[in-house]
Write a protein that binds this DNA or RNA. Structure first.
Lengths: 118, 118
DNA sequence: TTATTTACTTGCAAATCGCAAGTGATAAGC
DNA sequence: GCTTATCACTTGCGATTTGCAAGTAAATAA
């Protein structure tokens, strides 16, 4: 039972609807990792924030269900990987705005966000 | 006991830290209303998403505690009002990015965000 | 002076979170 | 080829948070 998933829409406001998909403490961190090129389950789990594995599984499912990320298995391999969809990639300005605000207004924050190395 | 309040910081990532303050389903909607000039408790509660009053009280407290909004009582009046601080006003690009993404990628969303009519 | 509204608070059940501990498949080492 | 470690999850469960409904005291309106 995922958290930011298919709930009844609260209003037709684009802010409210986007928050229905991304509005929680973890989803955007997974998206941030996807932007950094993280693509394996265990790698997301190793991020410094220490997401619990059940939550990670939920969030990845949500992101896939909502068309922001996709799960795939590279040919010749067996283990799953994740990558951003086009819609997911278009979250970059949003993510950047979040990072910029944090850098400016929360002391002790450090930049590290880089565009996908590839 | 507010939700997105003074928790131990999860990491020094500006995205994570910003999410510690704004990462839930309601906080940014209250900020959106503040941008629209909504300033009274009852008016926030009347927004179409229908925030529960206990949650509204919590979120307003959080926003004030985190320096994003401030509570004030106009001279000659008795009832409280709320307004954005400078830091809060600088959330505009973030809010706009959230709205833009929703408008583009979630069907049925309608724009309405306008700069504070002042 | 009485009735409304406003700005909250309180109680409580249901949903979600976060931790710890599995589990079975895959890959690595010998 | 066999053993061991890693990976991608799932499960259980207590603690926290949510969301609904109802209540309250102060302020404003009638």
């Amino acid at each position: 039972m995922p958290a930011p998933a298919e709930r009844p829409r609260r209003s037709c406001c684009p802010v409210a609807c986007t928050l229905d998909l991304l509005g929680d403490r973890w989803t955007l961190l997974v998206v941030r990792d996807l932007f950094r090129g993280v693509d394996r389950y265990s790698a997301f789990a190793r991020s410094p924030e220490g997401i619990a594995t059940n939550i990670l599984a939920d969030r990845l499912d949500d992101l896939v269900a909502n068309g922001i990320a996709e799960r795939f298995v590279p040919t010749g391999q067996k283990r799953a990987r994740y990558r951003l969809t086009d819609a997911g990639r278009e979250l970059e300005p949003l993510l950047r705005a979040v990072a910029d605000w944090g850098l400016k207004h929360i002391s002790g924050t450090e930049a590290k966000l880089a565009p996908q190395p590839k």
